[in-house]
Design a protein around this nucleic acid. Structure first.
Lengths: 89, 89
DNA sequence: GCTATAATTAGATATTTATCTAATTAACTA
DNA sequence: TAGTTAATTAGATAAATATCTAATTATAGC
């Protein structure tokens, strides 16, 4: 939960997730989309991976990243709970 | 969106929101629940207020905080979108 | 085996964040 | 009005974060 919200806190990482929603991408393809060096993107990808928001698989010299949504259910539940439950007065 | 996720990133602030889900509380009551000084809690409350996750009203010397859920819809939509939309292959 | 390419790791650094103590502001109360 | 209480603001600081450059690792192709 902590790792998850930590990962979602950064705009670059949120943008990466949005990109991966459309299609799987290699680290290089992701890096191209940002005005930022490859190591910086690598850092963000690692953080997303730790939060289990993305998975990575290596094919040759390329590493392809995919969005993983399972862990998002948790945050969704947490937020929904906050919204839906009426005050106990 | 940025302020919102920033606010949700911290465990103390998330706990405060959970507490306010149950009932409105004064700054002092909130501070009591944490092993942290009142100024620190004040800092967190200010951040939550900026993110529009709480509202505050003053009554005498006391300031009572309430949960505000409207802004959460935005984050909910963002997360749902990520979860539900299938890849465009 | 050498050279090029993709990606990550290591190390440095500026900025942001969360926390504290001390000081201030505002309101109540004797 | 002097003292007390609730809360915030100011200022300092340690730790976390995001970024960079340089170095390394792994694979591909000649």
């Amino acid at each position: 939960m902590n790792l998850l919200f930590k990962a979602l806190r950064d705009p670059t990482r949120r943008r990466i997730l949005e990109m991966l929603k459309e299609r799987d991408l290699t680290a290089g393809q992701i890096a191209e989309a940002f005005a930022m060096t490859a190591p910086s993107i690598s850092y963000h990808l690692d953080l997303l991976k730790h939060a289990q928001l993305v998975s990575a698989r290596k094919k040759g010299q390329f590493v392809t990243y995919s969005l993983e949504t399972t862990v998002l259910d948790e945050s969704l539940g947490w937020i929904l709970d906050l919204i839906k439950k009426g005050k106990k007065k």
